[in-house]
Nucleic acid binder design. Structure first.
Lengths: 222, 222
DNA sequence: GATACCATCTTGGGATACCAAACTGGTATC
DNA sequence: GATACCAGTTTGGTATCCCAAGATGGTATC
């Protein structure tokens, strides 16, 4: 694999895991030293990450994309559009075995699994459901949206109840798809998305001060 | 503006205007000579265009993205999801003056306007309608989808009737938005999208042979 | 005549050197 | 004391050089 790929993947991981703070400034020379490549692959990686909107230009400089509260509401709206359509198509097209595979994804998450695991599966679930639609554009749109939400979801302090609640919604959704109840499934996912949005916004708004103190740029208002 | 920007914009224009053929191989050194910059900005521009999926890797080489027939059907599905939601939100949120502005966009296109003009307005219309939703993600999704369709739309031989037909559908849609009839408007745009898809696929399938002869890679099947 | 192999050339990947613009800190002047 | 200005430093933008891998074409061998 090329160095550019490696740098891209590593920096991406650092951003998503909040190892580098949202809003933090990045210099090409620091990254050069950090990853041991020269500026050429570093810049290529930055350009790619810019396209994924994980990194942004601030004048002439680079910065890690801040978390924008206003974006979370808009993203929920977008997800409703895309995911409800994906779910409807999934009801028409998904095979039993493919649906079962997604169910197993949920089951694989033990109650005492580490937080990383829950976070990852919570993201992957939506992408995998989108994949049941068979439409590449819907899949990519969902994957992109979940990436954008990833850091906010990580910051959300999740109680065991709210986690169980979300998982119950996931299982309900899969059941509806399996029974090919398109309208109900679409409605279920829309409600789930709105639930998530509300929990995220409440949580971030509450913790905004302390997150700022950790150097995280949480900007805008819901 | 930086050279990278210039090269990016120029090459993008060349691709969208079919000045370079879909599927054509691009070498960094050729672009270097063509645009008068060095390889560094050329490569940065290519990476950006790759992110927009106008350019693609073919092994280690670069190529102009081919036109894929299978993509057109999937894109129509995606557009239905995104644009119908955008239109519904537009019915809730768009101001009269904003709707009027989009109407003027259509009116500005004289019957004897050059083909480029019709093509551009036909694309912009959908983006501007999406803009009425006020949701950045929906706007970007529509803009991206229209970009992906741009070259296929250009290749379509359009009769004056089919052009008038499309324009009538556009006007109908705006009227429905103005009257805040969300369901009807959403249905109208879905029908319009399906009409467009059918016309595109028919046209491309028919002309496939001659387009191939011009060196255009039209791959896959609908 | 076909095929396997080798020299050569092309091409993208990466490293580095240089430049210009922006920022920083300090100083001198009002 | 405030402000305007200047030198030094940092940083991204660009050009260019080197390298390894892959493509090419020609030749020798069977």
């Amino acid at each position: 694999m090329s160095q550019m790929q490696q740098i891209h993947d590593q920096l991406r991981e650092m951003i998503l895991s909040l190892e580098v703070a949202p809003g933090e400034r990045l210099t090409e020379r620091w990254l050069e030293g950090r990853f041991g490549g020269s500026r050429t692959p570093v810049r290529a990686a930055l350009v790619r990450l810019e396209a994924e909107e994980l990194v942004r230009r601030d004048g002439r400089n680079w910065m890690v994309a801040p978390i924008e509260l206003g974006e979370i509401a808009a993203l929920a709206e977008f997800r409703e559009a895309v995911e409800s359509s994906a779910v409807r198509l999934a009801c028409e097209r998904a095979s039993e075995v493919d649906i079962d595979a997604v169910t197993e994804l949920l089951d694989a998450c033990e109650p005492d699994a580490p937080r990383e695991e829950w976070h990852r599966v919570g993201t992957d679930f939506h992408v995998e459901v989108a994949r049941l639609s068979g439409n590449e554009f819907l899949i990519k749109a969902v994957a992109g949206a979940m990436t954008r939400l990833s850091r906010a979801r990580w910051l959300e302090l999740r109680t065991e109840q709210s986690r169980d609640h979300a998982w119950a919604e996931h299982r309900l959704l899969l059941d509806l798809i399996r029974r090919r109840e398109a309208d109900a499934a679409a409605q279920a996912i829309c409600e789930h998305i709105r639930d998530t949005r509300d929990r995220l916004l409440t949580s971030l708004e509450e913790d905004r001060r302390s997150l700022r103190a950790r150097g995280f740029a949480i900007v805008g208002k819901a």
